[in-house]
Simulated scan of single mutants.
Amino acid sequence: MNKEALKAAIVKIIKMIILDPHDNEAQKDTFVNDYLSYIDSIRFIELITEVENEFGIEISNEDLILENIKDLDSFVTMISKYVNADVKIMK
């Protein structure tokens, strides 16, 4: 899976579990771009669980550090390591 497709899938997950479905799309896009900078611990666990389930991966606790979750791009980069590793193993 390429990085842009992965990012789109992660944004969709964030929108699905975090945001009010009555918000307009512009509000959602702005919120998603900033969301990881102030996510609380309960929502973060929910997000990680949804991402792991969606992609069939298990994220190591060692990767759940501020550097990897400070913004959407950092988070996508961290997740891509797992998603791409599974693709390589399956080939």
Rank of each mutant, 00 (worst) to 15 (best):
E25R: 09
K81R: 14
I69P: 00
N33I: 02
D71L: 11
I39D: 03
A8H: 07
E58W: 03
E54T: 15
I13A: 04
N61P: 03
T49E: 08
F75R: 02
E58D: 11
Y35N: 04
A26V: 14
V11Q: 15
D63E: 13
A26E: 14
A9R: 14
D73I: 01
K15S: 10
I18D: 06
T30S: 10
L6R: 03
I18F: 09
K28W: 00
L36K: 05
E46Q: 15
D63W: 02
L19D: 06
I59C: 09
S60F: 04
T49P: 02
F75Y: 14
L36Y: 05
E54G: 00
V51Y: 01
E4K: 15
L72Y: 01
K3T: 12
K88L: 13
F44E: 09
L47R: 01
A5H: 10
I59H: 06
D20M: 05
I79R: 00
L72T: 03
L72F: 01
D23W: 15
G56H: 09
K81D: 09
F75G: 01
L66T: 12
V76Y: 03
L19M: 12
T49K: 08
Y82S: 07
K70W: 01
F55G: 05
I10Q: 03
S74G: 05
N84H: 09
S60A: 14
E52H: 06
N84T: 11
I14H: 00
L19H: 05
L36W: 08
L6N: 06
T49H: 04
N53V: 00
Q27R: 14
D29E: 15
K15L: 02
N84G: 07
E4H: 08
Y82E: 06
I48K: 10
K7V: 01
D29P: 00
V51I: 13
D63L: 09
F31C: 04
Y82H: 06
V51K: 01
E4A: 15
I14P: 00
N61F: 09
D63N: 15
L66Q: 14
I17K: 13
S74P: 02
A26L: 13
I89V: 14
E52Q: 15
F75C: 03
I65N: 03
L6I: 10
G56K: 10
A26C: 01
K70P: 00
E52K: 05
L72A: 04
S41F: 04
L6M: 08
F75M: 04
L66G: 12
D34N: 15
I17T: 09
A8G: 06
I57R: 05
Y38V: 09
L47P: 04
D23A: 05
N53L: 13
E25V: 13
I65E: 12
